[in-house]
Amino acid sequence: MGWKAAEKLIRHWKILRGDNVMIIRRKDNGETGVIKRVIHSLHRLIVEGKNLKHIKQGQGREGGIFTVEAPIHASNVEVLDRVTGKPCKVWIRYLEDGIKVRVSRGIGASGSLIPRPEILKTRTTPRPTVPSLAELQ
């Protein structure tokens, strides 16, 4: 898959933090995990406990072997279908009452709804506080 095709695929993000995904390429091929972080600007994801890399001693770090989770390109993972447990494509559909939902689609997919992960209800960074008018005076 060329870069333009991959960029077109991820123009509208359908993969969210907290989704169960399967890695379909690279050294962790076939392994599953939960998305820990999404880096939109680089089109990359960090999957919990996968794509581990060693880092060397550096400024502010002691010597030794440390493993960190390296980012994976978004085109190298697919969301797992909840019913069949197989990797599938994610499509956006609207229900009759106008609610936007994610639906599994592709070979081995059941066509079931993929709910938004519960972890999205909690924020990773706190919202900035805006001072009230009374505090400014």
Results as ranks from 00 to 15, higher is better:
108 G>H: 11
40 H>K: 04
32 T>C: 06
125 T>W: 14
74 A>S: 14
82 R>N: 02
59 Q>Y: 13
8 K>Y: 11
38 V>Y: 02
79 V>I: 08
85 G>I: 00
50 K>Y: 14
46 I>W: 05
84 T>K: 07
12 H>W: 12
75 S>W: 08
57 Q>M: 03
12 H>N: 15
47 V>R: 01
62 E>W: 10
106 G>H: 10
24 I>K: 00
31 E>D: 07
10 I>E: 05
78 E>A: 09
126 P>I: 08
75 S>A: 06
123 R>G: 08
17 R>V: 01
95 L>H: 15
99 I>L: 13
123 R>N: 11
20 N>A: 07
81 D>V: 00
67 T>L: 07
83 V>W: 13
35 I>S: 05
26 R>D: 07
25 R>L: 10
136 L>W: 09
3 W>F: 14
35 I>L: 11
102 R>E: 06
35 I>C: 02
104 S>N: 11
19 D>R: 00
50 K>G: 04
68 V>T: 03
98 G>L: 04
27 K>Y: 02
78 E>Q: 06
94 Y>T: 03
80 L>K: 01
11 R>S: 14
99 I>S: 13
88 C>M: 09
130 V>G: 05
85 G>E: 06
7 E>S: 11
34 V>H: 01
110 S>K: 04
35 I>H: 05
62 E>L: 07
60 G>T: 02
45 L>V: 07
130 V>K: 14
79 V>A: 02
69 E>Y: 09
105 R>T: 09
119 I>Q: 10
61 R>E: 02
116 R>C: 12
37 R>S: 14
56 K>S: 08
88 C>A: 12
54 H>C: 11
113 L>Y: 15
29 N>P: 02
42 L>T: 10
21 V>G: 02
105 R>D: 07
86 K>F: 01
77 V>M: 04
132 S>F: 11
60 G>R: 11
73 H>F: 11
74 A>P: 09
82 R>P: 00
83 V>A: 11
33 G>K: 07
111 G>P: 05
88 C>I: 05
107 I>K: 14
13 W>N: 14
18 G>N: 08
55 I>L: 01
105 R>F: 12
91 W>L: 10
40 H>I: 06
17 R>W: 01
37 R>M: 14
54 H>P: 08
118 E>T: 10
38 V>K: 03
100 K>A: 06
66 F>I: 09
65 I>L: 10
106 G>Y: 01
89 K>P: 00
34 V>M: 05
113 L>I: 15
134 A>E: 15
79 V>N: 00
45 L>D: 04
124 T>L: 15
70 A>V: 05
126 P>L: 08
1 M>Y: 06
33 G>P: 04
128 P>K: 12
10 I>C: 06
49 G>R: 12
50 K>M: 09
58 G>S: 04
46 I>E: 03
16 L>P: 00
102 R>S: 06
40 H>Y: 15
35 I>F: 10
117 P>M: 15
38 V>F: 04
78 E>N: 07
121 K>W: 15
114 I>F: 09
110 S>Y: 03
135 E>C: 07
